[in-house]
Design a protein around this nucleic acid. Sequence first.
DNA 1: TCTGGGGTCCTAGGACCC
DNA 2: TCTGGGGTCCTAGGACCC
Length: 424
Amino acid sequence: MKAIVDCNSFYAACERVFKPALHGKPVVVLSNNDGCIVSRTDEAKQLGISMAGPYFQHREEILRHKIAVFSSNYHLYGDMSRRVMDTLRLLSPEMEVYSVDECFLDLTGIDAAKLRDYALFIKHTTELWTGIPVSVGIAPTKVLSKLANRLAKKDKKGTGGVVVLQTREQLMRAMQQVQVEDIWGVGNAGSQKLHMFNIHTAWDLSLMSEEWARHHLGGVTGVRLVRELKGHPCIEMKDPLVSKKMIATTRMFGKAVYELPELRQAVATYIGRAAEKLRRQQGAAGMITVFVVNHQPKYHVNDYTPSSRSAYRILPTPTYLTNTLIAQAMPLVEALYQQGKRYIKAGVILSHIVPCDHIQFNLFEEPESPQLQKLMHTIDNINFGIQTDILKFAAAGTAKNWKMRQEMRSNRFTTRWDELCIVR
DNA sequence: TCTGGGGTCCTAGGACCC
DNA sequence: TCTGGGGTCCTAGGACCC
């Protein structure tokens, strides 16, 4: 059996841990740049605040209902996520961290009759140790456990936040309650198609043949999905040690950018951040992609149609050195830049990643000098230990007019000495 | 005024090879 | 009139996830 443990309204829950007065009150958290609403507590959902809605469109109701609003505080959420995962690691032999607020557990070997008690134990322990409420779904496959979890979240009172699906009866009744668009792995395109075939619930879909799924539901992906719904596991637990194949750093600007020097600075800054992630997984990138997005505002309010251009370069030798990556990327920025455009976003993507002890050096290139390697290491240590970005490359600039807005960020309670909670 | 960021996997189709 | 067959590798783009 597989379990999925999912934190309820994770970002908002993190804020509540350090502001107990907000318990039982509506809270929302915004995306970077205070752009969209990305986390809402149940109380905020009940007031009609929709997911991923632009903040400025909801500002009035948020004020009217006195909803607490926070800018995103990734230092805090990252650290709270680590605490939740560390707790769960102690409670299960095999786990896969699926996202910042979710993880799968393999419960093979646990007595079927005790599964519900075990799920409750997981839930209570996590909440007691971290202050973050979670829901638990347990079923024979990953897809079915996600489905169980959805039912647990939807009716927290009725289910106690825990749903276990074991018998054929239980599975059937659960699947009949879930619409196809709410199945893990079925998106917009898939669900529209399914409805056209008169398949509306997870149960309907589970009755289809694998051949049918192969033809109409995206080949092997569809087959896997139908098999999982039928109760045959075929989406494996993933190895936690596998490194990322691609590393991206992309941001909307806080203020539109028109000039090339500013655009170069932004891209150089993002490369610094991406290279840091790359070194953390001890990788070297063989390819760098840069993209820029521009948007000319039109006459109607709802016309949001940005357009983007990108360019890439295959590096002569894979590297993790920030300065080399910046040097490779700057000509790309210059090629992409068009005078007079109003840039609202840019990003870099590092790919063709190899382990850095496996770099295949080019016959005509000098291998990277040990001093440069040491320099990177030192920069990372200082930036991580003392203060983010205290050391950076000159190309990244210092003015940063384009930097994102975060006007309502809470303190980084768990990762900064000077921002700790004060208890009187 | 104002619309996030970071990933994975799969497939089709082109390039290339013998 | 008529122009092979089979295979691999790579990339772009779509779909999906949180």
